[in-house]
Write a protein that binds this DNA or RNA. Structure first.
Length: 205
DNA sequence: CAATCGATGATCT
DNA sequence: GATCATCGATTGG
């Protein structure tokens, strides 16, 4: 059975909902960028109008312009003078909703990810890291997820996310609207060392 | 293990 | 001039 046969690319309808609805739905989906792919394991929702932490909170600008556009496109921004972060634009035109991709589990193209990252561990467990591993940068800002080489897929096999819980918590790395519980992540697998620091997490089987 | 800090440049005040 | 949806090295317990 060919793997491609099990994949179904997400359409505009999937993305055309509020970011807080799309975000948990993205957990477990397959992010594909060229020959690389990975399963989405951590996301955060941002909602321009009501969310002081959103880049779009204070209105439209050249930087956040893509977020005001149609759903199903990618908003890539440059931050801290050296990192890129990637978001999925959701909701409708004029409403600046987006979902920040914070972590994936690498599946395909791992060798290329290792080359781009310059190391073989912690390839994609952070928003800046996954962009570097996948080669996403400002040239990808505004690209469509609905066709072309960047896309998100439903992938029923082999799905290592099946049966794992989804954990909800406040967003991290922000200083405003810090209490919004708008971060969703896949619970870690046993022995998985791919997640961020969590309390009491040193076990030796 | 956790907490702190420097890098580095675009964007906003 | 300050801030920043971060990362990785370093420092300290």
């Amino acid at each position: 059975m060919r793997r491609e046969a099990m994949r179904h690319r997400l359409t505009e309808e999937f993305f055309a909902r509020h970011s807080t609805v799309v975000a948990p739905d993205l957990i477990g989906k397959l992010l594909v960028v060229g020959e690389c792919s990975g399963r989405i394991t951590e996301v955060e929702a941002y909602s321009g109008a009501d969310d002081a932490a959103s880049h779009a909170y204070r209105g439209r600008s050249s930087r956040n312009d893509v977020m005001f556009g149609p759903a199903g496109h990618i908003y890539v921004y440059f931050t801290y003078g050296m990192h890129f972060c990637a978001n999925v634009v959701t909701d409708t035109v004029g409403v600046a909703n987006a979902v920040l991709l914070r972590a994936i589990e690498p599946i395909d193209g791992i060798e290329q990810m290792v080359n781009r990252r310059g190391r073989s561990d912690n390839l994609t467990n952070g928003p800046g890291k996954l962009c570097q591993a996948l080669g996403l940068d400002r040239s990808d800002n505004g690209a469509s997820l609905l066709s072309g080489e960047i896309g998100i897929y439903d992938d029923s096999w082999p799905d290592r996310s099946a049966g794992r819980a989804i954990v909800v918590s406040p967003r991290i790395g922000i200083t405003r609207a810090v209490d919004f519980p708008w971060r969703w992540q896949l619970a870690a697998e046993r022995n998985e060392r791919n997640e961020r620091r969590r309390p009491g997490g040193s076990r030796t089987p």
